[in-house]
Amino acid sequence: MSSKLFFASSIDVPSVPTQLMTVDSLANLVPGNDYFFKPDVSSQAKGCFILTTTKEGLFHSTSKDGVVRVDGKQAVIDFLLGLSKNLNYLQQPRLVMPPEFADICDNDEVVVVRIVTLKVAGGFMVWRANVELPISRKVFIRPYAINVDSGAIPQLDGKVLQEWQAIKVLVTYAHQQVIDLNAVGWDVALTDKGPLLLEGNINWGTNLMQSEKRGGLVDAMYLQMIEGLNPGRDSL
C-alpha cells in the first residue's frame, strides 16, 4: 500500500494507468498529450509535476504548487530525470475533471473523492467520504462531506455525485483485495471517462473525517469494525 506503483500494478479494479518514469518512458511522450508525475512514496501532492504538451512539440512543466516551471522538451526531460536520481517517479496521464464540476471549480485539475472503508464482521462498508475540490496552483484542497448513503454533498447545495453507487462498489471491492487492513482511505479520481481508483491510504486523514458535524471516530460503524477484530469480546 505504501508503494503507489506496486499498488497500481496489483489491484484488480478500474484505476489510473501508472508506470515507472524512465528514460524510455520520457522518450515516448506523445506531443499533444498531458501527463502527471509524482514520487512513488509521497503525500499531499508534494513533489508532483504537471506536464502539458502541444502537437507542435512545445513542452511545459509546472509543479503542483506553481512554484517551479520548466519549458522546452529537452529541458523538461532533463529536469524530470534529475528528480528520479533520488526517488522513483511515476508517470500517469493527466486526468480531466468531469463536466459536472466545471461550474464550481476555477481550474481544470482533477477532482478526487476520499472514501474510508471499514472491514467488519459482515464484509466491507463505506464509512465516511469527502469530495476534494482542487485549488489552482495549490497542493491542498477544499474538502466537503459526502452523505455515504445518497452521494449528496450538503455544502454544495445538495449536489449528488452521478456515479456514487458505482464508486462504493469500486472501493469495497478494492478493500477485499487487501483484507489484512481494517480501515483504508481510497482516493478515487472523478474524470470525464468515469471514476478511476488512484490509490489507497493507510493514513487517511482522521481530522477531515470528523469535520462538518460528523462527530468523533468511534461511532456505530466504527464499533462494528472493532467487534470484528475481537469477536466475542466487549469492544468497549
Rank of each mutant, 00 (worst) to 15 (best):
1 M>P: 14
4 K>N: 14
5 L>F: 15
9 S>H: 14
10 S>A: 15
11 I>C: 12
13 V>C: 10
16 V>G: 13
17 P>I: 10
21 M>S: 11
26 L>G: 12
27 A>I: 02
31 P>Q: 08
34 D>V: 00
35 Y>T: 08
39 P>K: 09
41 V>T: 10
44 Q>A: 13
44 Q>I: 11
47 G>L: 10
48 C>K: 03
50 I>F: 13
50 I>L: 14
51 L>Q: 03
51 L>N: 01
52 T>W: 00
53 T>F: 02
53 T>P: 07
53 T>I: 04
55 K>N: 11
56 E>F: 07
57 G>D: 04
58 L>C: 04
59 F>N: 07
61 S>H: 00
63 S>T: 03
64 K>W: 13
65 D>L: 02
66 G>R: 04
67 V>G: 00
70 V>C: 03
70 V>S: 01
74 Q>T: 09
74 Q>V: 06
74 Q>R: 07
76 V>W: 02
77 I>P: 04
78 D>Q: 09
78 D>V: 00
81 L>G: 06
82 G>H: 01
82 G>Q: 04
84 S>R: 12
84 S>D: 12
85 K>R: 12
88 N>C: 03
88 N>D: 15
89 Y>M: 14
93 P>M: 10
95 L>K: 05
95 L>M: 15
96 V>G: 04
99 P>D: 15
99 P>H: 11
100 E>Q: 15
101 F>I: 08
102 A>K: 13
107 N>P: 03
109 E>A: 14
109 E>S: 15
114 R>C: 09
116 V>C: 07
118 L>R: 01
121 A>I: 05
121 A>C: 05
123 G>H: 00
124 F>D: 04
125 M>Q: 08
125 M>R: 06
127 W>T: 06
127 W>M: 05
129 A>V: 11
130 N>W: 01
131 V>E: 06
132 E>H: 12
134 P>M: 08
136 S>G: 03
136 S>V: 07
137 R>G: 02
138 K>P: 07
138 K>M: 14
139 V>L: 11
146 I>R: 01
147 N>L: 02
147 N>F: 00
147 N>Y: 02
149 D>C: 02
150 S>W: 07
154 P>L: 05
156 L>V: 06
156 L>N: 03
160 V>C: 11
161 L>G: 03
161 L>V: 06
162 Q>H: 10
162 Q>Y: 00
164 W>N: 02
166 A>I: 00
166 A>T: 02
167 I>Q: 04
170 L>D: 12
170 L>A: 08
176 Q>H: 04
179 I>K: 11
180 D>F: 03
180 D>V: 05
182 N>M: 00
183 A>P: 02
188 V>Q: 10
188 V>C: 11
191 T>C: 01
191 T>Y: 04
192 D>A: 14
194 G>W: 01
195 P>I: 09
195 P>V: 04
196 L>A: 10
197 L>Y: 08
198 L>K: 11
200 G>W: 06
204 W>P: 13
204 W>R: 10
205 G>D: 10
205 G>Y: 12
205 G>P: 08
208 L>Q: 14
208 L>T: 15
208 L>F: 09
208 L>E: 14
210 Q>K: 03
212 E>T: 08
214 R>P: 04
215 G>T: 05
215 G>N: 10
216 G>T: 05
217 L>C: 08
219 D>N: 15
226 I>G: 00
228 G>M: 05
229 L>M: 15
230 N>L: 13
232 G>K: 10
232 G>H: 09
235 S>R: 01
